[in-house]
Design a protein around this nucleic acid. Structure first.
Lengths: 191, 191, 191, 191
DNA sequence: CATGAATGAGTGTTCATTCAT
DNA sequence: TATGAATGAACACTCATTCAT
């Protein structure tokens, strides 16, 4: 399952972090989960900090990539966001630990300021672009792009958490239709 | 300012946790901030875990109480939620550390499952009630109450984060009007 | 024997360093010798480096003080040096570990450049003074003061090592008479 | 420059030990300096200890050999010692790292008792021979041969250190004349 | 009640050594 | 012969907790 040592360690680390937290998970534990000796970790990562950052970055990149699927072909901010919500939900349900890892990282005072939606993330940039374009076309409510972005993230998180406990809804088109309406109702500029 | 020793310690602890994280903040640091000896902490709290839980609980209770202000007098789920958003925003801006403490606690795998909106919280119960009532009256989108609740939380968090960086909007009625529309557009069942 | 905790630890550390070297002696070992817990060491010393430096400094200061006894009352560079040699020998025989600790410190590339006789030591300054005065009065060979100083140190070390294995000579006035002659023959400017 | 792998490694090791100390220098560092893989070290040396001992021994042998040059042709203990001092000084200035390596080894509690002049060294034997012969002929002060030897070493070290910082003196015949007088004044039995 | 010196299990990290290639 | 990835015991250091005062 693990292509190489590095990935093998990163996956073990993500598991450990999810279960015990960034501080709670020890290097010993991670090494054991990865099936390597403790010293081996330091062949691939400078230190625990580096391991955490790289574990986060792996999750974040995969998340972003999954979210992006098919987005370019869609016209309009609202439809793009609707599609994006489906993308992230499907990916998140299949990779719950990676979602959790992103959250842990972002909520740690050591690594981040506690926002879900942060300027330096890749998501910020793509979402921000969508929002600015939508605002320009008069498609979205006249609110600052960052607020629109953060709001979209908030709704997304809600839907995702709901799906975690009701995964069967993932294929329920009625459910998605209502979600689409929520997003549209929330963000679309009324005529 | 601190009524008694216990509160004095709790407030120092909240400060420390916000700045350095639940694991990052040491009992030494907390004691120093509180102006008491390290041993004294253990007279008021069983251990660090207990201190964290009580610090969280203090913040959570005050949060809930502040959110509740004036809600009983309001008729209708949507208006209630709109008011609630103003309540939590105003309180949160005045008590950013307490909001942060709640987040830290909820995002720690040791104490919580990582949800913002959790069954055991007091908010869950009040919001859930509002949602159930609203659904019964056909006021809200036909979605499960927990999803509606989580969605409301998501929008609330977005608005709050935005206000943190643009606090002058707190008194901007136009801003709030748009927020009200976002909430309504998102949650109200269209005719 | 140990006045306070700090001294108690320093003495244990000196013992350990002498037996196992600065790097070879572990903090665990030092703590055990001192009869305290490992953590206690860090209440009195910032880190191992600090402990080493302070252990050295303690030895160095006592060494210097012992060497100085009665020197002020003596007139002339040669007699002063002769007396000094007796002083350091007597003190060194009674405190062999402290002498060794000084050597270990000075010979460690981490802490020093490897000279026995170093500018920053207290001995350097007092000996240098004696040499300069002696040169001024034409009492000593016309050589640079540092070379005279280093030479005196070299002879001193030789005598000390010899005494370590023949401690009974410490009270042998004939022995000291010959030592005095060695020093004089070596350093005094012939007429 | 390095005849074979073994020498190449030994020279790299000596460099590393001089700069970082016997404990401070890692096998990694030595391998890198020698331009070989870490594992290769263990083909030529049993372990780090063995490497240290052999590195020391190499330096020691070369030192002894250099000191011996032209000594057999000289009659009399004092002239021999004077010549020897010039030999070791010239060699030491040209091979400062080898001198340093010898010192590091001798001052390490793990390998030695901390004496400059030690029974098991090759120097001990040749110097001891000179001293015994000189004593027999009444040429030297009536002191035990080991003390005379150690004293000579002490003066030698002083001269060498001085030359390190004033290398131009190496060719200054006046300087050497005074050194010769120091040695003679120190060790020769007065009539 | 309050203290803070003392504790020691636990942490992240290093590094001499091994061994499959 | 030569390699360098892997190992794991050992290390310096931290910190929640205790307890004599």
């Amino acid at each position: 399952m693990a292509a190489d040592r590095r990935t093998q360690i990163l996956e073990a680390a993500i598991d450990a972090f999810c279960e015990q937290g960034l501080d709670g998970a020890g290097m010993d534990d991670i090494a054991q989960r990865a099936g390597v000796a403790k010293g081996t970790l330091y062949l691939y990562f400078e230190n625990k900090d580096d391991l955490i950052r790289q574990a986060y970055w792996l999750c974040h990149q995969q998340d972003v990539e999954a979210c992006q699927a098919g987005l370019d072909a869609i016209e309009g901010a609202i439809p793009k966001l609707q599609r994006r919500l489906r993308n992230v939900s499907a990916w998140g349900l299949a990779n719950p630990k990676k979602i959790r890892m992103e959250m842990l990282y972002k909520s740690s005072p050591k690594y981040s300021k506690g926002r879900r939606y942060q300027t330096q993330t890749l998501q910020y940039q793509t979402i921000d672009k969508i929002m600015r374009d939508g605002l320009e076309r008069g498609e979205l409510r006249r609110l600052p792009a960052p607020l629109l972005g953060e709001t979209f993230f908030g709704i997304g998180a809600a839907v995702f958490y709901y799906l975690c406990e009701n995964p069967e809804k993932l294929d329920d088109e009625d459910f998605w239709h209502t979600c689409d309406e929520m997003i549209a109702g929330c963000l679309r500029q009324p005529p």
